[in-house]
Amino acid sequence: MITDKDITNDYLNGLNASMKGYAGYISDANNQALRQTLVNLRNGDEARQKKVYDYALQKGHYQPPQVASQQEIQQVKSELTSDQ
């Protein structure tokens, strides 16, 4: 039997895959109108993903990972900016 949790997780996985796809298409788009259309579609998926994520969190269908400490955040920032 398909549960609410199964449907929610499936929808989230689909939205996440869609957003990854848009990232590639946007970076390759040479036509500005096409690029903007793809950006708008991606933004819509991001908004839907946030709503479904919040729903999953509220219903207990998703347990987020432990919150990163300030030290861990700073370390990642340093690593990402040291290459620039």
Rank of each mutant, 00 (worst) to 15 (best):
L38K: 01
A23I: 09
A29H: 03
N16H: 08
Q49M: 11
T8E: 02
G24S: 08
L38S: 02
A17H: 13
E46F: 09
Y25R: 15
I26N: 07
K20R: 10
R35P: 10
Q32K: 13
N30W: 09
G14D: 00
Y22W: 10
R42S: 07
S18A: 13
S27T: 09
S27D: 10
M19K: 04
I26R: 11
A29C: 12
G21W: 03
Q49G: 08
L15V: 04
D45T: 00
R48V: 13
Y25V: 08
N30K: 15
N31Y: 14
R35F: 09
N43M: 09
L41M: 14
N13H: 06
N16V: 05
I26D: 03
Y11P: 00
D45V: 02
Q36R: 11
L15A: 07
A29T: 10
Y22I: 01
D45L: 02
V39G: 04
N13A: 08
L15Y: 03
Y25E: 14
A29N: 12
N30M: 14
A23L: 11
D28W: 12
L34V: 11
G44R: 10
N9T: 02
A33P: 08
A17R: 13
M19W: 02
N40W: 06
A29F: 11
Y22P: 03
V39K: 10
L41P: 06
Y22C: 06
